[in-house]
Amino acid sequence: MGTAVTTPTTPFAERVAPVAEATRKVAIICSKGTLDMAYPGLILANAARMSGMDVMLFFTFWGLDIVRKDRMDHLHVSTVGNPSMHMPTMVGGLPGMEALATSMMKKEMARLEIPTVSEMVQMLSDAGAHLYACGLAMDMFKLKQEDLAPQVEGVLSAMDFFDKSEGAQIIFV
C-alpha cells in the first residue's frame, strides 16, 4: 500500500461515531413549487437524516405547494423561462408543452425509482425530519393547516424559524 498507514484511536472513533453533542443540524428552506425545485430540498433533507443530522424543512411561498394536499403530487416542470430546457421560450409556452415535459420527467424519475413528492414527505417524517410551513405565506394563499399534508408539524413565523434553526446550516432552495 503506497499510502501512509496510521493507527489513530480516538479521533477515528469520534469521526465515525460522533458524540451526541456534536450532531450537525441543517435547515432547508423550500421556496419554489416546481418539480425541479421541490426534489433538491427533499432529497438533501433525506440525505442529511440518513447521515444522522438534525433536519428541519421550512416551506414558504410557492414551496408550500410541496406540502399542499391538493398539489403535492401534481407539481410541474416549468418550460417557460427555463433556459436549461434548451427550447425557445415561445415553444415552451405552446399548449401542452409543460404537461409533456412534466410527464417525461416523471417517467424518468419513476424509472430511477425516485419516490413521488408525497412519498418523499412521508419518508422524511418517518426519518424524523421536522416540517414546518410559513405562516405569512399561508395567509397569502389563504391556507389552513388542514390544507397541508399531516406530516407538517406546525406553522411558523420567520422569527420562529430562526429560533428553531439556531446553530443549523441553512440551505435556501
Binding site: M50, G52, M123
Partner: peptide, 24 residues
C-alpha cells in the same frame, strides 16, 4: 430506501435501530 422496502424493517425502525444515521 431499498433497505426499508425489502429487508422487512421499515424506515422508522431503521432510524430507531441506527439513531446516529442509518444511511452510513
Amino acid at each position: 430506501r431499498r433497505i426499508s422496502q425489502y429487508s422487512g424493517v421499515g424506515m422508522k425502525d431503521l432510524y430507531r435501530l441506527f439513531p446516529k444515521g442509518p444511511g452510513k
